[in-house]
Design a protein around this nucleic acid. Sequence first.
DNA 1: CCACCGGCCAGCGCATGATT
DNA 2: AATCATGCGCTGGCCGGTGG
Length: 208
Amino acid sequence: MRRRLFTTQGQAASSKWTNIHALVRDQRLGILTLQETHLTPTLVDDIHNLFGHCLLIFNSSDPNNPTSSAGVAFILNREVMSTSHSKVHEIIPSQALLLTTTWHNSASLSVLNVYAPNDYHQQTSFWETLEEYWSDHALPKPDFMLGDFNLVEDPIDRSPPRLDLSAPSVALQDLQLSLNLVDAWRTDRPSERNYTFRTSSNSFSRID
DNA sequence: CCACCGGCCAGCGCATGATT
DNA sequence: AATCATGCGCTGGCCGGTGG
């Protein structure tokens, strides 16, 4: 149950965003990435009106169904980092957003936030489109890629174990090769089982 | 009048089992 | 092995009641 808390402010800013604001401040997070944000530009304005002193939001929304489908966002904490040199590139609307920024006056940092399609017919072309984008545009390669991948590359990442379709996994591996990325968590823990998503029927997966 | 709340419905996201 | 059909849970949108 999510209810509007700030109707006097005009439109929405649900308790979810109150919680996100508290989380970012309490944990002193610099950069938070979100998927399935379901935000419109108006909603982002509302959140900025409430929490803009602390949060800077870059959101990319679904052109057809912004409030009910997809959407990716970066949440920057102004209290922890300078946001003056931060900008985003909308690579695939609502599904792939690249943040370029500086981190504590040191080298530049780029982060790719992805929400891959859950329809497996679209997954292969999604990863291929990303790979082509970097060969067609002069963009810094991301230092980190994270988000909702909606696939696993190894049966160990599902419980009960199950192998996903091969074509999307191959496309993802090709992208990782071309961007010089590795699954850092799995590299550090070759055989550990841990999951990011679970269903009510006790199945688990590490698709995020 | 207006702010707030609960019920209901439809669409979305994910998994699973059947079918080809 | 790939695709289809289905189910479940969650969320947003809408409506209508309620109490100040």
